[in-house]
Amino acid sequence: MPPRRVVTGRSPDPRRRFAEELRLLREQKGDSLRRLAEVLGWDASLFGKMESGKTLGSPEVVEALAQHYGVGDLLLTLWELAVGDPKQFKEQYRRYMALEAEALSMWHFGVSTVHGLLQTEGYARALLGAGGIAGEELTRQVEARMGRRQTLNGDDPPQFRTILSEAVLRTSLTDTEEWQKQLEYLVEMSERPNITLQVLPFSAGLHGLDSTSVIFLRLSSGCAVAYTENAHRGELIEETASVERLQRAYDAVRDRALLPDASRKFVMRMLEDVPCDPST
């Protein structure tokens, strides 16, 4: 079979192809980076980093660019292919972990699961196992996650706020004993001075983070970054306008959440409802 002929001359690497397409579309339209920033409302530096391949941007930015250039779903399709590169997610996650270690404060919102820093070993094992991890790799990742919990237990731990959707507390483990331990651990951690736990009840209705788990890290430089994720991938967001947009959505969620005392009582009621193990 003859080798595949290169038709377009574009890079076969999804990330590079996405960056090349962005640069080509802007040049064809005759826009400068500054002009693009004025029209769309994001920093010119973000578009420059996207065109150089240093960042992929968020789907909101990509959608705005697609509308500006009038290319339909082309850019979003290329973006999805680019962020599907496992190496990209590993690089982003490594950078996120480095930033987490130096963060002065963290604000988290969980759609369906407890944040890793507040997970018990049993919960972490069940969650990672549900994602298809098994054997030695599962043991290694659980141990690593348990080691991360020391972030909140040091001599000068960061301030940590977590807002948990009621769905998190309604999605119990099949092992009732491990689920009880997880709820007890949430109550215990919520009593620490550097940790604030809030619950967003179902009665709060729809909100801007309905499908987004996010954590914000406030760094010593005074800047904040955000990390959003779902079961299959995550994205580190550093561009100021995008972080601020997520922050406004987070603030609205916090305003609807139960106050810390009421939230602790909510978790304790959930704990009381855990079925007793008939074997004990």
Rank of each mutant, 00 (worst) to 15 (best):
G122C: 09
H108M: 05
V142Y: 02
R145L: 11
V114H: 00
E121C: 05
A124V: 05
E136R: 03
I133C: 06
R145H: 10
S112L: 15
T151E: 09
T120C: 03
A134R: 00
H108T: 06
L152E: 01
Q119G: 03
A124C: 12
G147L: 02
G116W: 03
G110Y: 05
I133F: 12
T113N: 09
I133V: 13
G132F: 00
G110A: 08
G122L: 07
E121G: 04
T120A: 05
G132W: 00
G154T: 11
E143P: 01
N153C: 07
R145F: 11
A134V: 12
M146V: 08
G129L: 09
V142H: 03
G122Y: 03
R125T: 14
Y123C: 07
T120V: 05
E121H: 04
D155P: 05
Q119Y: 08
G129P: 07
L127W: 13
Q150N: 12
P157W: 11
R125S: 12
R125D: 13
E136I: 11
Y123F: 15
L138T: 11
T120F: 09
V114Q: 00
A134I: 07
G154D: 13
R145A: 08
P157N: 01
V111P: 00
Q159A: 14
N153T: 10
R140G: 07
T113P: 02
H108W: 14
D156P: 00
R145K: 12
G131Y: 02
L128F: 15
R125E: 15
L128Q: 02
Q141Y: 12
G132N: 03
S112N: 13
R145T: 08
H108G: 02
G147Y: 01
G122P: 02
H115Y: 10
T139H: 07
F160I: 08
E136F: 12
P158W: 07
D155E: 15
P158T: 03
S112Q: 12
Q141A: 10
E121Q: 04
Q159S: 14
A126H: 01
R145V: 05
M146F: 08
I133Q: 03
G147E: 11
N153L: 15
Q150H: 14
L152R: 03
Q141I: 10
S112M: 14
A134H: 07
R149S: 09
T151W: 15
D156S: 09
A144W: 14
P157V: 04
D155T: 14
Q141L: 15
